[in-house]
Design a protein around this nucleic acid. Structure first.
Lengths: 142, 142
DNA sequence: CGGTTAACGCAAATCAATTGCGTTAAGTAA
DNA sequence: TTACTTAACGCAATTGATTTGCGTTAACCG
């Protein structure tokens, strides 16, 4: 009883987008989804991807959260994942499990369909001996 | 033991930014902070505000979360607030309290300093008789 | 009271995300 | 099956938040 029927018309592109997210081990940005579509030989436009993702998110099929300041989407299932972001080196590590109990946050008439959570802090590497000059590259620089 | 010393040099602008956030009842976007600064007679540039907010966020003094797709900042205190966003009408309502227990999510060497959480769903107004044609305006249209 | 450099202001540049519009094709009813 | 309505689509242009380069200013330290 986890997944509901996709909303709107069932097109090749929309089905492909959902498949990509179902098979992904992590949340994907619109641009990543678009890249995967194109890598598969598709010629879909980026705006189509954005529109589909928005549509799916609006119905609660997907959940949308900001990862490194860009929107990432994942299937709204019980086994979604959250991430911890190091505010020093910007590295991202997945959390084991979700600390929220399903109906924990419901207020007044609001029907909770999903949530997004990010944790901030200092990763082990950055804390270890406070080496701002890193030993191994935590993340590619811009 | 909630608030730590602001990092970096103490300038008029940086102190003002922190004061604004300390006195705010809700998270503010960089543009809102900038607007408040200017309303107070300041001539600070927007990039200065962004740089200060980033700096404070990096040290854990502030927490940064996406509200309606734009970054909003608030003091990282025990009494921060989270929000529920209606995926249909985009209305935003504050949650009562934070459902996360302080050290609940720590993993390996990661030192948790804050978090951001948003809840998605359908607000009471949108659920009431499923009126997509709203009775009262939930939120200004773009 | 100088020297170093974090902060600043400004303008230009980025880049994710959105939108207008003409076209295509999915879903539905005849 | 065919005709019709309209959601989806592709493309190009635009928006708007956020970032960055660079020359200048002022905070902090000795």
């Amino acid at each position: 009883m986890d997944e509901r029927k996709p909303p709107g018309r069932s097109t090749v592109t929309r089905r492909a987008i959902l498949d990509i997210l179902r098979n992904s081990m992590r949340p994907l940005s619109a641009i990543e989804v678009h890249g995967i579509l194109r890598a598969g030989g598709g010629r879909q436009s980026l705006s189509t991807v954005y529109r589909a993702l928005d549509s799916f998110t609006e119905t609660g099929l997907l959940i949308k959260g900001a990862l490194e300041d860009v929107a990432h989407y994942q299937i709204n299932s019980a086994k979604h994942t959250h991430f911890a972001v190091c505010t020093r080196c910007k590295s991202v590590v997945p959390l084991k499990g979700c600390p929220l109990k399903p109906a924990q946050v419901a207020d007044d008439g609001f029907e909770v369909r999903g949530h997004s959570l990010e944790v901030f802090g200092i990763c082990g590497r950055c804390r270890g001996s406070c080496n701002n000059g890193f030993v191994s590259p935590p993340r590619a620089e811009k």
